[in-house]
Each structure stands twice: as C-alpha cells, then as structure tokens.
Design a protein around this nucleic acid. Structure first.
Length: 284
DNA sequence: GGCCAGGTCCAAT
DNA sequence: ATTGGACATGGC
C-alpha cells in the first residue's frame, strides 16, 4: 500500500509549487496530489519519497524521477546568469502531466493568477468530476473530455471567456487530437495544438513541456518576458520570437528546465522595486 | 478606479 | 508582420 521511492536530489516543494501544476494540497509533512483519476499522497522520507495511493511506474513517470536531473542541473549551473536560480531551487523536476488535464489547466490559466487558477480547477472538478478519496481525504478527479461539455455551467463557475475554450478543447480531445500529438515532434505538435481555440504559443509550449516531455519548449508569459528582458536584453522590450530563439540557442533541450527555474525564481524573489527602495545605492 | 494577472483573437495598420 | 482593444473576473 505504501510505496517507497529513492529520489536523491529531488525537491518536492520546488517541483509541485513552481507553477507547472495546480492540483496539489500541502499537508503538514507532504502533499496530496491529483493526477488523472488518481489521488495520492507523497511525503519526503530521507532520500526517498513515501507515496500512498499510486503505483511506482506512474509516480516515477509523473514526478520525472527518471530525468537525468544531475546532468541538467550541472549544465544550467554553468550558465552564470542562471546560477542563482538553480542553486536556490535545485531539485525541481518537470512533471509529466496528463495531456488533457494540462491543456485544460493552461487554458484556465489565461490572463489569470495561480490562486485563482487553482480555485477554478477545483470548482470544475467538484462540479463535473468523479469523487475520489484517500483515507480521510475526499475530493474529485478532474473531468474527462466526455464530462466537460457545459459551457454555460463553466461560466457560472466564473471561468469567463475561458469557458468556450475549455468545451471546444474537450471536443477536440474527444476527437483524438491529444493522442495524435503524442507521436509528433515538437514543431508539428505545437502546430497541431494551436488549432485549438485559446491555444497560441504560450499555452502550447506549457502543454508540450509539462505533459509531452518536450524540454526544448520555452513558454513565455509576463514573468518570463520580464526576467528575460532584464537579464539578457538590458530591459529593452523585444518580440517573444527573439526571446524564444535566444533561449533555444542558449539552452537547447534544457530550455524548458531553464524556464521553470527562472519562473519560480522571478516570482518568489523580492520585487526589484522593494530592494531598490531599501537600498538606493545598490549595495545588495 | 485603473492596472495587472502563467494570453488569445481579431481588425486595422 | 506588428499593434491595440476586447474578452470575464478578481485582487490590490
């Protein structure tokens, strides 16, 4: 019933809370995690993870335990501009999420914020998803594409303009789109995803990175745009296309990992304005 | 009260 | 090819 997995160097908080995934609940010594029809708990125990409610192959794949993280971290640490972020958030892994749930999550994320996204997703699951439980914890799975057809209902859940995107994505998922994408290389997979209304470059790259294992994907949102222009373009606004090419040339197949380190670092560090106000001379 | 939030779409340059 | 506004809603 209880599963113990060796996971040296793996950091649960950095992995689950870095913004790539929204369906976790922190408990005193670990997390509850919703993924597909599963609800499992995961806790750190020394160099291992103690898991209840899911089997080893699934957990290994979902948490990215088979990624060559040491190699990725080593490569990114050699980049001076990235070094601080990687040192602080070491142990972060890119998850391998369910493509449908990941697509729905990042459609929900459009022009929103993490607390609201998580609340929206919880509302959708509670309204349309199958009940699941683990010990005393009762909750709901995210609805399958077949169960997500009610645009008006989604609007009542305050999804706003995203409601239409979600039901249309569900329809295309029922038609098999997300299976076909699994066998395509990055560029073609992205093109195929972008036929879904509501999916353009940014959401497509999130899905390709967080669900399909395309680690070269580099999603550019407002945070990444800000940190990239500050860090590499002297604060000058440049087209996203330029940032994308830059990231691809600098980090290649690790660009997605670089993006996630930069994202959590940019979000959790003290705002630049605050530091400057405290220390106008820049002594920090 | 206006601006921004893990954007996208559409129309007008 | 690039740019501005609309799109729903919530938080500050």
């Amino acid at each position: 019933m209880t599963l113990l997995l060796r996971a040296p160097g793996f950091n649960l908080r950095h992995t689950l809370e870095c913004g790539q995934f929204f369906r976790w609940t922190r408990i005193p010594d670990g997390y509850y995690v919703h993924a597909g029809d599963r609800l499992f708990s995961v806790r750190r125990q020394g160099d291992s993870l103690r898991v209840e409610g899911a089997k080893e192959p699934f957990v290994r794949r979902f948490l990215g335990l088979d990624h060559d993280a040491a190699r990725i971290e080593e490569a990114l640490l050699r980049d001076r501009r990235l070094r601080e972020a990687v040192e602080i958030y070491r142990g972060l892994r890119i998850l391998r999420q369910d493509p449908w749930e990941c697509t729905a999550a990042f459609l929900t994320s459009i022009a929103s914020n993490i607390p609201r996204i998580a609340a929206n997703i919880t509302d959708i699951a509670r309204t349309y998803g199958r009940p699941v439980e683990l010990g005393p914890w009762r909750s709901h799975a995210f609805p399958r594409p077949e169960e997500l057809t009610d645009e008006e209902g989604l609007r009542r859940l305050r999804l706003g303009f995203r409601a239409r995107y979600l039901v249309e994505a569900a329809r295309l998922a029922r038609a098999g789109l997300l299976y076909e994408i699994a066998s395509l290389p990055y560029a073609e997979a992205k093109e195929a995803l972008m036929v879904v209304p509501g999916i353009a470059e940014k959401v497509a790259d999130c899905v390709l990175l967080f669900a399909y294992g395309h680690f070269n994907a580099f999603p550019i949102d407002t945070w990444i745009r800000r940190v990239m222009t500050e860090m590499f373009f002297r604060g000058r606004r440049v087209p996203d296309r330029v940032i994308r090419i830059f990231a691809s040339e600098r980090w290649g197949d690790y660009a997605g990992y670089a993006q996630e380190y930069l994202y959590i670092w940019a979000r959790e560090r003290r705002p630049v304005i605050y530091r400057e106000a405290l220390d106008p001379a820049g002594a920090f």
